[in-house]
Simulated assay, not measured.
Amino acid sequence: MTALLLALWPLFALIVGGYLLRRWDFPSEAFWPGAERLNYFILFPALLFSSLATAPLDNPALPRLALAVLLALGLAWIALLVARRVRGWSAARFGAVTQGVLRFNTYLGLAAVGSLFGKEGLTLAALMLALMVPTVNVMSVWALTAERGVSARSLLLPIARNPLILACLAGALVNLSGLGLPGGTDRLLSLLAAASLPLGLLCVGAALRPQELGGEVPALGWNCAMRLLAMPLLAFGVALALHLPAMESSLLILFFALPTAPTAYVLTRQLGGDSHLMAGIITLQTLLAAASLPLVMGWVG
């Protein structure tokens, strides 16, 4: 447990640092939107591209992980649809709830994987992301637009434009082509990738909105319990049922134990969802994950 805490506390220290820096208006309010865009469109895709361009795509773990991811997400999605029917949620509320349960903080996830499992874990995590990111995005967009109806174009266009998905596809294509990363390209990408995770964690902290925690305490509480406790338990059950090896089980549980993604707030506002609830969910989950993530991963062992 001590080793786990030593691996994870610097990640949350960066998140707290980002929150304090923005509160102190350093370097300036205009810095953070630009930093988020730089990371989202350049630095983070470089990490995913380089991981997949050199990954062993014939790894026998891939089919098992793909099945485990789809099964766990599918079960959670069915449970959410049943809850929506029982509770009578509007699309605005259902979209926020769904993203709170299904989406995950990619920056924190890959930083934790790198600290706990090294390069081998990062390779498997990048392959998992290539499947999880588009699946969760489709579910999120559908949830936010369920009452208005949704076309195939409105579902698929955000995915086709997503730089993380494009980086995964490009990395896989380079890998399959056998071209590799010649002429120092691998070094360039590793330098870009090295900057992505610390900057991403600082941006996560800068995006926290503690003022949004009031007024929705019951909804925030059970949503956090679903994401931070019930989802990793579901992942554990799926890993047990599919007899996944130890590292694959741990990676699956880790990604299902992460707090939701800060970018969920942007999507919620764009599609007319309950942005107040979404901001509260993001903030409270991120804060609570500092305690829940070490506990869950320590329990996994």
Rank of each mutant, 00 (worst) to 15 (best):
A194D: 13
T263V: 14
Y107H: 11
L254F: 00
A66R: 12
V86D: 11
G280F: 00
V113N: 06
A170W: 01
A194W: 04
P259K: 10
L295A: 12
L188P: 05
V97M: 10
L258R: 06
L252S: 01
L287N: 04
Y107F: 10
I282K: 08
Y19L: 15
A290F: 06
L20D: 10
P10A: 09
W77I: 13
M226E: 14
C224Y: 07
A146T: 11
L228F: 00
L6C: 13
G171A: 06
A261E: 10
L242P: 01
Q99Y: 00
D274S: 11
L191W: 12
L254P: 00
G301T: 02
G95H: 07
V296N: 08
S151L: 04
S151E: 10
L267Q: 12
W9C: 10
L73H: 09
A207P: 04
W142T: 15
A291N: 09
A130Q: 11
R269N: 13
R187D: 15
L293W: 01
A230T: 04
G88V: 02
G34Q: 13
W222K: 07
P163Q: 09
L252K: 02
T283A: 06
G280H: 02
L57T: 01
D25I: 08
V82G: 07
L197P: 00
C224T: 13
P10D: 10
V138S: 11
T268L: 04
I159T: 05
A160L: 13
E216L: 15
N39S: 13
F236E: 15
L251E: 06
Q99E: 12
P27L: 07
I282H: 02
G121C: 03
L81F: 05
A92P: 04
F236L: 14
G74N: 06
G200N: 08
